[in-house]
């Protein structure tokens, strides 16, 4: 079985003789290699700045270091869910596989980052507030948001034809994004335990020097990591669709062969 390479990946080597067997499908390209190296180097720098060079906080002490991951992971997750929503709109409009798979891939990476955010947020909560979890507005809306996107991914697993799957999940992908501004603004709108916004929307984020630098470095690094993961995930999804196509071709050929044997003629 030969499989086309995903969009954006390098074509088979020019020196490869035709008919030399199936081309190994892969998801790497020059862009992803650069992104991968950049996020790896950035991650090392973040560890150095976040864990050693930046000073502890007067009140929070060493706990503040959780923020250098917490804010970036949630920012990447929000971005991922916004990409899902935009790609879902584009899918309903253009009906192309590209947008459907981009929406799905982005939601998946988004759930990964969002789960990480909740996990490191709970560690922060235990140390700072004294409890892992309280059903306060930010945490409640966050839980709803995670469940919504888990639902989105679950719906995509229901066996159906690609158009139905694409349409249903695009509708969910658009509806679910409404919860992002609600979750984001929950700390302003309602009383709760969670502190107010750390980076975005604060005119004067009360962070300075190396603390502020580490927070923004974390943001850049996690966005690079997100882009790298998203591109690979999209290409894997694309290859999976091609494998599905090939299976379908085989199944059709088999049915046709059966029809020819049983009926002694052409399939009707």
């Amino acid at each position: 079985m030969t499989v086309d390479n995903p969009p954006g990946t390098a074509r088979p080597a020019a020196g490869r003789p035709p008919g030399a067997g199936p081309v190994p499908a892969h998801t790497g390209s020059r862009a992803t290699r650069l992104l991968g190296i950049a996020s790896l180097v950035g991650m090392v720098a973040l560890v150095v700045f976040g864990l050693w060079l930046s000073p502890p906080d007067t009140q929070l002490g060493e706990t503040i270091r959780i923020l250098y991951m917490h804010v970036p992971t949630v920012s990447a997750a929000y971005l991922a869910f916004v990409i899902t929503a935009v790609a879902s709109v584009a899918y309903l409009w253009k009906r192309t596989e590209f947008w459907d798979l981009l929406a799905a891939s982005s939601a998946e990476i988004g759930v990964l980052f969002f789960g990480l955010t909740i996990f490191n947020g709970m560690l922060w909560g235990k140390i700072t507030w004294g409890v892992f979890w309280r059903w306060e507005p930010r945490l409640t809306t966050t839980a709803v948001l995670l469940l919504t996107y888990l639902g989105y991914l679950a719906v995509r697993q229901i066996p159906s034809d690609r158009r139905t799957r694409g349409t249903v999940s695009a509708v969910i992908g658009i509806m679910a994004v409404v919860n992002i501004p609600i979750t984001h603004k929950a700390v302003d709108w309602w009383r709760g335990l969670h502190q107010e916004k750390t980076i975005f929307g604060t005119v004067d984020p009360d962070m300075r020097g190396l603390q502020l630098f580490s927070a923004y470095l974390g943001l850049v690094v996690f966005l690079l990591l997100f882009a790298w993961l998203l591109i690979h995930r999209f290409r894997v999804a694309w290859l999976a669709e091609r494998v599905g196509d090939a299976d379908l071709d085989v199944a059709i050929a088999e049915r046709r062969a059966e029809g020819a044997q049983v009926g002694g003629g052409t399939p009707s």
Partner: peptide, 14 residues
């Protein structure tokens, strides 16, 4: 149960 309500102020320790 005492929950600490941390606000978004950070200070470098000195």
């Amino acid at each position: 149960q005492i929950l600490i309500r941390h606000d978004n102020t950070y200070d470098e320790e000195n």
